[in-house]
Amino acid sequence: MDIRENLAQIGEEMRKEMESADALAALEALRVKVLGKKGSLTALLRGMGQLSPEERPKMGQMINEAREKMTAMLDEKQKELAQKEKEFRLIAETIDVTEPRDLPEIGAEHPMNLVLNEVLDCFTSMGFSVVEGPEVELDLYNFELLNVPKNHPARDAQDTFYIDDNVVLRSQTSPVQARTMLTQKPPIRIVCPGRVFRADEVDATHSPVFHQIEGLVIDKDVTMADLKGTLDAFAKRLYGQDIEVRFRPSFFPFTEPSAEVDLTCFNCHGKGCRVCKGTGWIEVLGCGMVNPKVLEMCGIDSTVYSGFAFGIGVERITMLRYGIKDMRLLYEGDLRFLKQFR
């Protein structure tokens, strides 16, 4: 047979086989069969030795051209098949994306810490430092330096746990104020979060252990309007821009004037609802201008400096924030409760 014919035949056969090839493996076998070391085209090339020297380059060129053509065709086909196989594979790999699986569990901080974090973020961004003090505290700091001498009726409001005559479980976070004022020169701008203790039996709204956040600012020319501004910023940051603060006259031995602070009810936005007992306001904290007697007892010149203090009940704002009706849930640690927080 003439090489030319052979070439045509090889080409024809390959085309046929290539067309019927439906897998990459078959195509690869075909490539080997034709173009491989022992392939038919390679054999043809080898057979060129029998040709005359004049014919050789011509034939050689012809075979090489055919080879290139075939290679290109095979490559083309390979791409096509590879694409098809990929599509098959993707279809075959389809999974039911709606099947359920167990989730990796992400825990949560205690709700009171979630709220506390928000509150501390708010005050630290206003330049307040976070300071802590002892929970087992001297009567001196818990009461005396805060203008509550022994046998003062204000002590009745806070049924205090005693360790001995001079040591109490602090009934408020205010002793940290006294400690700070005694050791630090104004300007002072602190918040003191922490545990406090009062001899109340446990029920839905009382706990012998609870948490407060005390705030204290001492500087020159601090006014009650600054206090309102600070608490207004806090309220808006925590509960939204439409929240207003309302000050009502009150009494605390360590502040004068003193105020009870109400916020627009964040449930009904002031319209009146169950949460705010129809008043549109929710009592959230107590505050006032630091009593000059307290400043003097703590070694700060009250003719030069003034300041304000406030105390926020963490349980209260946590319960309000999440609609928790029973304080006991906060201390029971039931995961069905804790897992609701994020």
């Binding site: 206003m126 330049g127 430092s129 300007p187 020159k220 006014t223 501004g229 600070t230």
Partner: peptide
């Protein structure tokens, strides 16, 4: 409602 005017100290957690 007014805002604190004095020098703002560096706040933050301990």
């Amino acid at each position: 409602i007014t805002h604190l005017r004095g020098e703002t100290p560096m706040g933050g957690l301990n």
